[in-house]
Structure formats: C-alpha cells, structure tokens
Design a protein around this nucleic acid. Structure first.
Lengths: 189, 189
DNA sequence: CCGAACGTTAACTGATCGGTTAATGTGTGA
DNA sequence: TCACACATTAACCGATCAGTTAACGTTCGG
C-alpha cells in the first residue's frame, strides 16, 4: 500500500468512525465501508486502536487547519478573529453531516485518562487552546491564557449542545456569549 | 423483584454504565457487576436499551435534584445562585470518580437524533435549561432565555474540558466566564 | 518472463455480543 | 405443608467482535 493509499484509508476510516462510533463500528464493516480489505488494513495498523489514533491525528490536523482558514477569512484583525471562531463554528454546525466533535466522542468512549485515545483527544484541545491564546495575545488581552480558556469552554459547550438542540440557535448563543466576554475583556477593563 | 430491588438494579447499572460505557459494557459483565442475574434483568427490562433509558431517567432526577440542592446551599439570592451553579460544578468535578456527563456520553454513543437514548439526553439538557431560565427570571434578567442558554453553554463546555484537563482549573475558568456574563447582564445594561 | 510486493476473498480462531431457555433453589403467605 | 412467585446458575442461540491465516490474483521492475 502506497503512502497515498494509506492516507486514503485513514481518511475513509475517519468518516466511518465519525458516523458510526468507535466501539459500534466493527472492523468487518469498516473494511466494507472503506473498500479496503481487512487483511490490508491489518498490514499497516497493528490494532484497531492504532487505526483510530491515526484517524484522530488526521482529524486534528484537518480541523485546526480548517478553523484557522475560516477564521482568517471572516476577520483580519485579531480582535475580530476571536469572534470569528464562532462564525466558523456556525458553518461547521450547519454542515448536513455534523455529528459533534470527534474528540469529545473519543474521550467519551475511551474514558481512562491514560488511554492513548483519550490522551490524543486532550492534545487536540490543548492545541486549540494554544491557537486561541495566540489570537488573544495578538488582540492585546491582558490575560490571554485566561481569555483563551474561557473561549474554549464556550466552544466545547456549543459543540455539545449543537449535537442535542438546534445547531443554528446554539451557534448564535455561543457567539453572543463570546461577544460579551470580549466586551468585558476589552471595553470594561 | 420488588420495586425497591428494581431500583437497586437501576442504581447499580447506572454506576456500571457510567464507569464502563454503554457499548463497551456487555450484559454478562453488567450482571456480574450489579450482582443481579441476567435472567432477572431481562425479566424487567425488555432490552439493554430499555435498561439504559431507565438509568438515564434516574440520573436525570438524581443530578438535577443534587444541583438544585447544592445551588441553594451556596447562595440564597437568585443572582448569586446563577454563579453558584459553577461552585456546584466544581464540587462535582472534584469527586474522585467524576467521568464527564452521562448524557454527553450517551449522545456521543447514540448519535442518531431519533434514537430514544439521544432524545433522553436532549430532554435532560432541556430540563436543566428550564431550571437556569427560572433562576435567570428570578434574578431579574431582561432576557432570561438567552442568559440561561449562555450559562448552559458554559456548563457543558466545562464538563467536557474537566474530563480532559485539570478539573479544578476548568471549574475556575467556567466560574469566571459566568461571572463576566452576569456582569455584562446586570451591571453594564 | 519471472518473482517480489502489493492487493484481494474467504474461511477461521476464541471471545463476547444481546437475548433466551431449562432446570434448580428459596422464601413467604395461605 | 403446599404452592407460587421470585430468584439463581448455566447452557445455549446466532451474530458479531478483533485479529489471523491461506490461497489466489495483479502489477511492475529487472
């Protein structure tokens, strides 16, 4: 299997796990859905867990790149970009196949904090936090770490609720919440 | 099985599913962990799903009652009670067996919005939202619905992150976020 | 034209899945 | 003391689980 074929497999497995869940989707079904035989899958991934970890690494890269692009597209100034996070979220929520966050689901199914899948999910959130912190610094926040953590809390809450309630409503609520936080940060200080 | 025995089973199953996950915990293991034979379990629950739904209904009642009690214990005035939500959250996060929210996990494993388990999870959040709205009304909010939704976003985000990061830190961040929201709501209007 | 290197299908392992059945206690009330 | 309602254990069902193996193409460079 060439490197690109392997990437194709991981990409297809990502979508399949996202739709089907990690425990709920067996390897036979996965082989059928990806169009790659079980034999070939196990040639390049020792275990199901290894494959899941590969899909999570891909998703991390994909999502953060996508978010940064969309944020940049929505606003050019750092302060506006902090709000634009939630405009991007709204776009995500409105995608027809939105099904919450891959990493929240992963950490729900693999709860043990020492589990590699759980650890990978935490790393993803940590990288997002880093990105938020950089934006907060550029925006001139007096406490960019705290501000970033607050915005991350809002983002994660929005994702969970968008999966349960009306995604558009939730996106609007989250954006308004962020606006208030930023107003407190920059105009009432 | 008497009604109280049945309640005992549901209570034990609740703990077992919370620790083990829904798909990951099979019925044989569940029988062993609860001390109730599989035969007896299936005498009173048609399917595993029915048992899960019973555990979720119990958890909904348990959690909302607990939250209301803790909020009342932390503050007597409505405005203070809105903040006290996050003091209660902190207490929850610090419990040694905290493993995120049962309903977030349930909706992660049963993603289909028409699935009864998913629906039950959404109902739980809806009831929490109702409680928040009542508090916001009593506190004199001009838009109690919006305020309640914002606080719910913060609460859900805090739960997710408390499961991935340091629970104490996250509780502090969430409380501070809520404080800012309330300040914007009541002092800057 | 040959032989790796890659893929496939399909059968197989032992374990476990959700759920059922049969045989066997056991405690309580009439 | 009898009988019934309740529990138990343990075996069983067919399906599926993660993972392995064997036999059989296909492709492509030397």
């Amino acid at each position: 299997m060439s490197a690109s074929k392997r990437d194709e497999l991981v990409q297809k497995a990502l979508k399949a796990f996202y739709r089907g869940g990690f425990h709920a989707l067996g390897m036979d079904k996965l082989a059928k859905e990806t169009g790659v035989s079980k034999t070939a899958i196990y040639k390049h991934f020792r275990t199901k867990e290894d494959l899941i970890l590969a899909t999570l690494r891909l998703r991390d890269e994909q999502f953060r790149n996508w978010l940064m692009r969309r944020v940049a597209a929505h606003a050019s100034e750092p302060k506006g970009q902090l709000i634009a996070i939630f405009d991007a979220l709204r776009e995500w929520f409105e995608e027809s196949d939105f099904r919450s966050c891959m990493f929240i689901k992963a950490s729900s199914e693999y709860q043990d904090r020492t589990n590699p899948i759980h650890v990978t999910a935490a790393e993803h959130k940590r990288l997002l936090l880093l990105y938020f912190t950089e934006l907060a610094e550029k925006a001139g926040s007096k406490d960019p770490d705290s501000l970033a953590r607050e915005l991350l809390v809002i983002k994660e809450g929005a994702i969970v609720l968008a999966h349960l309630f009306d995604p558009e409503d939730v996106a609007r609520d989250a954006r308004r919440t962020a606006e208030r936080i930023l107003q407190a940060e920059f105009n009432c200080g």
